[in-house]
Amino acid sequence: MHQSFINFRHYRYGLIAGVASLITLVTYLLDRPRVPPNGGTWLGYTLGTIAALLVIFLALFGIRKRSFRSTIGTAIGWLSAHVYLGLAALLIATLHSGMHFGRNVHTVAYVLMCLVTLSGCWGVYAYVSFPGAMMQQRGNLRRSEFLRQIAELDSSSLELAESISPQMTQLLAEGARRTDLGGGNLWKQLRSRDESTLLLGIGSAPRRSSLVSNANQRALIRTLAEIRPGRSSSEVALSSVQKLLELAGSKAVLLQRLRRETQFAALLRIWLFLHVPLCCALLAALCIHVVTVFLYW
């Protein structure tokens, strides 16, 4: 069986975290403090200390995974422990809180911990399911292959267009230039909307030129399909238009796959934009929580 961070060493860290969670939960349920359950009972202090140490350990993973020369465990082992103990830490912190929340730094620390764990869960889901899905839709092509193929299609199209008319060349050149490949900022990558446009009415003054959406090359295909055999058109020109239509269709398919690929890559990366900064904020909030609790004892 393939060993991933999920089933690392027969779920070693899953078991450890599970047993730890169970012990904590049972202790919490059996404990009968004299005051309503809160972070200030002996169990509250114990759970708080454990949770804080766990958070520090979990944050150390960020250092360990960058130290390629480190021999303290394997990176996959650390990741496995990070995932399972992270879930256990949230439970322990929840019990430490005694379910008391308010508008204060203590609740901020807890909410940050929840957000870090949630984003981590999303990361686990992404790492487990996306690579397979990406492989499936990408086939054997790499991103550079996609780009090369699209460039080839553009280049063939322009070559054909030049043989038809300067207007056609301009139309195709503008279409190629204004193609949205799904790049740009993270939000655009995630949204994966085709914002390609097409400039219509080139060289046909006094008609005004206009910019229209060319999502999935639809505008280009429609424009090409609307070309009717006129008096001046030759057999050769018509067959070239036919060929251009085929090329536009192929480009549309390639663009869609590239866009999905870009979206997956962004999804795999987006959670880290939450997970890491929130984790840093959590460490700060945790320190403040510990200090202020005893500052105003």
Binding site: R148, I150, S155, A176, L181, G183
Partner: peptide, 21 residues
Amino acid sequence: PDETSPAAAAHTGMRRSRFTI
């Protein structure tokens, strides 16, 4: 136009931003 496509020059990856992790 017959040398390279303008599309190939476009950037598909994450645009470099000040707003890093």
